[in-house]
């Protein structure tokens, strides 16, 4: 099967999923509704009580600081759609239909993860507009900002593949949803997404420092110019090299889960 066939088949599959985003706009509304609530909650309820480094509980500074964390959390939750969507396709027999066609087998998951990138781009646009409304601004060059978005998208894309595997493994959309919530919720909170790490107790802080969610947030924060002035240099190698450390995770996720998820697709969707 040539690479061209894989791409063209993946494109057909992705197109199908994108039509669904268009036909069921509720899906996009609900993926963005809860992060918007988070923005409002943290910006106006908790924000006043959280001091960003160097800015003694300045709510305006906190809102700028907050957005990168919200972006990271949102695209990660966006990546879980991959798992739920695939599990639903298994349940409805669509995967069986695909598997009985002479298409490139890897195109099903590739198409799925690609369309979820489109979904995440739309979500990021909505969230950025929300951010602008609450006072968040990009203070860097176009290219730096683009790099920030790109890293967020790439990180979410690599996590999509983890969920592609889970979606093939646990063929019930409800299970995928619940399971992903249990894993992702602590992962996005034991991080610098909403609070500076200085406030975390010892071991938790170390975990948070090595958590890739922290580093992707840190990278986005730096690339958008949202680090409050006077912030001390972060501790720990990952946070000092957030772009590099995040990219390593992206690569690891892809190298491990692209083949694992595809093997799962080929062998065990059949029950």
């Amino acid at each position: 099967m040539s690479a061209l066939t894989v791409l063209s088949d993946a494109n057909v599959v992705a197109k199908r999923n994108i039509i669904k985003i268009k036909r069921v706009p509720d899906l996009l509304v609900f993926t963005t509704l809860s992060p918007i609530m988070f923005v409002l909650l943290f910006a106006y309820v908790f924000g006043g009580a959280i001091s960003v480094p160097g800015g003694d509980a300045d709510p305006e500074l906190y809102r700028e600081y907050l957005m990168a964390g919200i972006f990271a959390q949102t695209v990660i939750f966006g990546a879980t759609i991959t798992g739920a969507g695939l599990a639903e396709d298994v349940k409805k027999g669509i995967i069986d239909r695909f598997r009985s066609l002479p298409m490139a087998p890897s195109a099903v998951l590739t198409g799925r993860t690609l369309s979820d990138v489109v979904n995440n781009v739309l979500v990021l646009i909505v969230m950025s507009l929300t951010g602008l409304l609450v006072g968040w601004r990009i203070h860097t060059s176009f290219w730096e900002a683009a790099g920030g978005y790109l890293l967020l998208i790439l990180f979410a894309y690599s996590i999509s593949w983890v969920f592609a595997w889970i979606g093939m493994l646990v063929p019930s959309p409800e299970v995928v949803n619940n399971a992903s919530f249990i894993v992702i919720f602590p992962l996005t909170f034991i991080a610098n997404t909403f609070v500076p790490l200085e406030s975390l107790p010892g071991p938790l802080r170390t975990i948070a420092e090595w958590n890739p969610v922290s580093t992707v947030t840190q990278a986005a924060r730096e690339l958008f110019g949202n680090i409050p002035p006077g912030t001390p240099k972060p501790t720990g190698w990952p946070l000092q090299h957030p772009e590099l450390y995040t990219s390593i995770w992206v690569l690891v996720f892809l190298v491990v889960f692209v083949p694992v998820a595809n093997a799962q697709y080929r062998h065990s969707t059949s029950r």
């Binding site: 409805k92 027999g93 239909r97 002479p102």
Partner: peptide, 16 residues
Amino acid sequence: RRKIGLSGQYAAVDEY
């Protein structure tokens, strides 16, 4: 797969 057609027990059509 190039030579067969399969229609399953429950219709595998994409409802959207």
